[in-house]
Each structure stands twice: as C-alpha cells, then as structure tokens.
C-alpha cells in the first residue's frame, strides 16, 4: 500500500518533470537562435573594445562616483537582459550580455576601468528608480526613455539613441496600416515599455493588453489574442525578421529618447557620462556598435546619433 502510493507519486513526478524540461529546453532553443549573438559579432565587438577610449585620470577625482567604481573594479549596470539586439543575456553564460545597450555599457566600463568589467543586475520598469536611488547599481542602461516626470526621480545622461514606437500585425492582416487604425482595437503592449502610456495618448479608444515579455507579446499576436502589438520599431524589426507570421506596418509614430539613468543629482557623473557619449559619437564607435547590433536586422538606414542634452529631462 505504502509502496503503491510512492510509485504512483514518482511516476507522476517523472511525467511532470519530463514535460516541464521539454518546455524549458524549447525556451532556451529559442534564445540560442536569436540574431546578433553569433561569434562574428562577438569578434567585431572585441576589436572595438581594444580600440575604445579610456578616461584621463584628471576626469576621475576622489570622492566622485567614478572613483568609487574604479576602486571597486567593476561597473554595476541594471538592464532588462531579455531584449534581443539591445541587451540579451546568454542563458548558458550569465556574464555574457550582448546588444546595443549592453555593448555601450561595457564601453562605459572600459572608459572608467580600462576593461569591460560589468556586473549585470536584471531590472524592470518597476525597479529601475529604486535600484538607482538606493545605490544598488551605478547606471541603468536599457531602453530607458527620458521623461520630465522621471527626471524628478533620477538623472539622465544622453540621449544616446532616438527610438520610436511602431505597430506590428499578423502577416495576413490588411486592415491595420498604422497607429491611426488602432481605434477600439485590442492592442498588445509590453509591461514596462513606453507603449503602455503612449498608445492611450495617441489612440484613447484602444484596449490595452499588457504582456510581461516580448516573446509572450509576439505569441499573443500570432494567436490572435490582440489585433496589433505596439513596441519599439527596432525590436519589432528584429522580431519580424525571424518570425514570418508578423509584419511591421507604418512608420514609427512617437519619439523615444533613450538615456542612461543615474542617481538623482549626481551632476559630476552626469557630465562624465555625457562626455563619454560625445567621445563615442565623435570617434565613430557609436556607429560601429549600432551596425553590429540593431543594424543587423531589417533595412533601417543608419540613424544619426542624437545631440546630448537635446530633450527635456536630459
């Protein structure tokens, strides 16, 4: 009797474990096949790191944030870690994070420390401000849109990239041609992405369906749970380049200036990061990083880097 119960339980546990591990391995396979993580792009980045500039010692004075980081020997960066081509963590090696934002963060680490030594802290839209204000991380580097409301809580260096939201629909959809066709439609957005607030501003009658992750949002769109998915145009280009079931329609309908989040009121560090960003643009490193990451998908022409301090809140 006792043995019988044990065997039944074990059999059940085995079945559940088997199905779960199947599901899990399916997930990691998806991650492996993402663009921008190939070894060639890795080699190209290594070359960029070797030639990357390092700050002169007079820029790092005692008592400043930069000196604390230098003494510690690593830069602590908060980022989403699940955004292909922007900041994507390798599931097999958590220290290996690639993408436009991640590579820029490593270049900032080189600028301060002379080596790309970064400790990655996963962040979400709910935790970014707290991570900065309590000093858990030095910078937030991950599709962090500069807004005047946020600028009351944190300081922003940059902007370092001008993005915008675009609309993706299922490939066989011919009725939605852009943001203006979203009235009273079910619109999928990603929790913590700018679309959460921008879609209601642009189309007040749209019904929002927030999903937690980009793959989840794309899946929901493909399954027809929503009529459209509104997300950063670069991320959508990346998704539609690997997934033939969806397509991007219309041009980006907002401007999202991405900035580097810093502790509120740290003026020296802000000037320092802005100087570094200008150097990246002047030496053409910004363009090289873009070409290596966001520039690998779609046929988006190379954008011009935005002027530092050009948006309200920066």
């Amino acid at each position: 009797m006792h043995m019988g119960a044990m065997t039944r339980r074990t059999a059940l546990a085995t079945a559940v474990a088997a199905s779960l591990s199947l599901a899990l391995s399916a997930c990691s396979m998806d991650q492996m096949a993402l663009p921008g993580t190939s070894s060639t792009s890795h080699d190209a980045m290594e070359a960029i790191y070797k030639s990357a500039p390092v700050a002169k010692p007079e820029l790092i004075l005692p008592g400043w944030t930069m000196e604390t980081i230098k003494k510690r020997g690593k830069l602590v960066v908060a980022s989403a870690l699940d955004a292909p081509l922007v900041s994507q963590q390798n599931p097999a090696n958590p220290q290996d994070v690639d993408g436009f934002d991640a590579d820029l963060a490593k270049l900032l680490a080189i600028y301060i420390l002379g080596k790309p030594e970064v400790e990655w802290v996963p962040s979400t839209a709910e935790t970014r401000e707290a991570l900065l204000s309590n000093g858990t991380v030095d910078v937030v580097f991950g599709t962090y849109t500069i807004t005047t409301k946020r600028a009351q809580q944190v300081s922003f260096a940059g902007p370092y990239f001008m993005s915008g939201l675009a609309v993706a629909v299922k490939s066989d959809n011919t009725t939605i041609k852009g943001a203006e066709d979203l009235a009273s439609k079910n619109v999928i957005v990603q929790t913590g992405a700018p679309s959460v607030t921008r879609v209601p501003e642009k189309v007040p009658t749209a019904k929002l369906m927030p999903f937690a992750t980009t793959p989840g949002s794309v899946q929901a769109l493909v399954q027809g749970r929503g009529d459209a998915f509104v997300q950063d145009y670069v991320l959508l280009a990346s998704q539609s380049s690997t997934n033939k079931d969806i397509k991007v329609v219309g041009a980006p309908f907002t401007e999202e200036p991405y900035g580097v989040g810093l502790k509120h009121g740290d003026a020296e560090f802000k000037t320092f990061v802005n100087t570094w960003l200008s150097t990246m643009q002047e030496q053409g490193i910004w363009s090289k990083v873009w070409k290596n990451t966001l520039g690998t998908v779609g046929d988006t022409p190379m954008p011009t880097p935005p002027a530092i301090g050009s948006v309200p809140g920066s």
């Binding site: 839209a125 999928i188 929790t191 369906m209 927030p210 999903f211 749970r225």
Partner: peptide, 17 residues
C-alpha cells in the same frame, strides 16, 4: 497581470511607468 489582463497590479504597473 503577466498574461495581458489589466487588474489591480497591472494598473499599478501602468501608473508607475
């Protein structure tokens, strides 16, 4: 809130954003 329904937590997420 994780799977696309706007209930209390999703509302808080939205306002916080």
């Amino acid at each position: 809130a994780v799977v696309g329904v706007i209930e209390l937590t999703a509302h808080v997420n939205k306002i916080n954003f």
